[in-house]
Design a protein around this nucleic acid. Sequence first.
DNA 1: CTAGCGTCA
DNA 2: TATGTGACGCTAG
Length: 770
Amino acid sequence: MKVNITETTDTCKKINWDDMLDSELLDTIPTNKELKGNNTILDKGLHNKNVIHENTGQKRKSKNTELKVKKVRSDSNEEIKQQVPTETCKQGNNKNNHFRKQKYTKAIKNWLSNLEPPTEDITDLDNIVNDSKSSVDIIQQNTHNSHKEKLVIEKTSKTNKKVVQAQLANKDGIMKFSKPQPNAEDTKNINEAVETKPKEKKVKKFVAPIKSQIPVKDITYELHTLDEDNLDDHREGLHEIINIEIIAVLIYSNGFCQLNSHHTDGTCTPDGIIVNSDDMFYCFKGAGQKIKEALKCLLENNTVICYGAQNILSYLKTHLQMDRINPKIYDAKIGASLLEPDNPPENFSDVQKLLSFSAQYTVATECTLQKAAWYMSLLKQCWAKLYAMLAEDNLWKVFVEIEMKLLPIIAGMECRGLCIDMSKLKSMEEVLLNRMKAVEQQCYKAAGKVFQINSAVQVRAILYDELQLDAKCNVRIRETLCKGAKSTSETMLRSLMNEHPLPKLIMEYRHLHKAHATFLAGIAQHIKDGVVRPTWVQTAAATGRIASNNPNLQAIPKAPFDCVMFPEAGDTDNSQLMFRSIYVSRPGFSLVAADFRHVECRVFAHAAADAGLLRALADHPDLFRALAQHWLKKPEAEIVPEERERTKRLVYASLYGAGTRKLMEILDVDYQQALQVAASFNSSAADLCKLAMILSEEQLRTSSPPVDAHLLLQIHDELVWEVNDLHVDRAAAIIKQAMEGCGQWCGMTVPLPVAISTGKDWGSMQTLEN
DNA sequence: CTAGCGTCA
DNA sequence: TATGTGACGCTAG
C-alpha cells in the first residue's frame, strides 16, 4: 500500500464519529432544490442568505488553494519563457492539456511552413530537444517559434508577423463567428458518425543535433530486423536470451518509437517491436507465425523493461493475436509516475528530468531504428536509476505487487471493450431528438420567430433586444468578459424564468442537447464494430485511481434521465432514458457487477479506529440507507435511491470537510498537511480497489474448472465483468470471496462487504443474493 | 470535502 | 478557421 494505514492510527484517534454526525447536520439536511441553490450561490459568490454552517473555514481554504494555483501558474509562465516547447505544457493543473497543446503547436508549425519554405531546422527541432536540453543555442531557437506570443521568425516580413500574432492571440475572432450548429448535425445518423481522419503527414527525417553540447559518438548498434524469412538465421542468438532483463519498445509506422512518441499521434500505428538484450537489438516486424513464437518465447522467459507497457500489450494482443501472454514487466513510465504522483511525467524526456538523468552522448544517424536503439540504451540507464529510487522510497513493493500486476488486467479490459446495443442506442436517440424538436418548436413559438437555439448571439438578440427581458425583470445581466455582451448563461436564464417561457425552454434545450452530445452521439463516435473501447489510464490521477477516457465510461449517469425538465400538468410524455442500458453483454454472456460497500468510509473508520463509526458499519448492511432513514425519519422501505444517494454525498462531504478541519486541530498542523492525511485515505481506498481487481482476476484465472470471465469496467469501487452464462454463479462467488478477502490481505480490521448484481445490460442489474 | 472527464460559452 | 479557458455538468468515494 502506498500509505501505511496503521501509521496514521494514533494521530487520528481522537476524531469522534458522533461529533461529525452531530445535530447540526440534522438541521441542515436541505431539500434537493435548496442543496442545488446553495451550491450555485456559494460557487458564484453571490448573496449567501442560506449558507451552510461553518463554511468560513472552507472559504478560507478555497482561497488558499486558489492562491496556490495562481502561484503555480505564474511560476510555469516563467518556465515557459525559458524552456523548450515540449516542456511548456508541464503545468501542475492542466497536465492533460498536453496533447491538445501539442496539436496546436503542430498546427502552427504547419501553418508557418506554408508561409515560407520549411527549413530543416524548424521541422526537426523537436527531435533535438530530447537530446540536448542543455544546448543553449537550440533552446533559443526553439523558444522563438514555439510559444505563441513569442512566435516570431526573423525572415518573416512585418505584415506576416502581425497576421500571425493577431491570429494566435485570437484578438477579435473569439465569439464572433460562433457558428450556429446546423440541425443536420444533430439529426445525423449515428452510423455516419465516423471519425475524421487527418491528412497523411509527411514523414519527418531525423537530423543529428549539430550544436548539441553532448558529445556525438559514432556508434552503430548491432541491430537486426527480423521477419518471417530471416528469423532462422538468428535463432541461436535468440535462444541464449533467457532469464535476463531485456528492453522492449514499440516502433511506429512513422519511424518513431515510444520513447520519442511526442512525434506520434493517432494516425501512427505500431509497426514492430524492438527488443534489446545486452548489446544486441532485434526488431521484430510482421505477424508471421515464427515471429510470434520467437517473440513470445523471448518475452516470457525474461524480465521485460519498457515504457508504456499498455501499448505493447495491446499491440501483442490485437496485431499478433497473443491473447494470454503475461510476461514479467517493469514499466518505467508507471514507475516514474509513482515517484511523483501529483505531477506525473508526460513523456520520456520528463522521466529523464525527474530522475535528473542526462545522456552522456548522442548518436549521429539518419536511421530511425538506430535512433530507437539509442533511446533504448537511455531507457536502460534510466531504469537502473529508477529502480534505486523506487527502492529508496519504499515504493518498490507497490510497484511490483500492484501496479505491474494491474497492467495486463487493464490491457485486457482495453482490448475486450464493451458491447453496445445499437438498436437501443438509436431508439433512445430518436426519443431524445423528438423531444428536442418539440422543445425547439415551442421555442420558436415563444420567440415568435425561427432562430438557432444553440447560437448565443441569436439568443442574446431575442432575449434582450427584442423581448427586453432584462429590463422587465429588473435584473442586471452579467456581461461576458470578452465583448461586454449580455450573458446567456444558465444562471441568468434562471433568473428570467418567471417572466417569460423562453428562458426555460432554452435551458431545457441545452440540457437535452448536452445529454445527446455526451452520452449518445459522443459515445457513438467511439463505437467500432458495435464495441466501444475506452482508454484506461493508470497514471492519470494523483490519488492513484484509474481514469477512463474516449469515452469516459466512468461518468455515464446512473440515474435515469428525464426528458422533461419542468413537468407540466398536461404533459404526459414523462419518458425516462437509462444511458447505461445501451451497454450490453455479448451473446451467451452476462454482466456481473461487484460493488464495495462504502469503501472509503471503511478505510477512514479503520484508520481513525473510531468505535462509533466501526459499530455503525458493523450494525448496518447499508450505512447510508440507515442514516437516511434516521435523518429523514422514514421507515427504511420508503427510502428511495435518490435519497440514499444524497445522504451519501452529505456523509462524504462532512467526513472529509469536518475530518480535515479536525485533523488540523488535533495534529496542530497546517491545512496542507491535514489535507495530505485525508488524501492518504483516498489513495488507500484506491489501492484497495486495485488490489481487488488483481486478486479477483487471479482467483478467476486459477480456478478449476476455468471460468470464462472478462473484466470490462472499473468504476473506482465497482468492477464489471462479462461472464459466460453458465459460469455466473461460480464467478460471482469467486469474485465476492476474493474482494472481501483483500481487506484482510492488507490488514484491515473492518470487514469489506461486497454487493454482486448481474444482468444482461448495465442499466438493469439485479442484485444477486448469495 | 476530494478526484476525474466532457461540453459549452 | 481553430484553439484556449473557466464554469459547470456528470461520475466516483
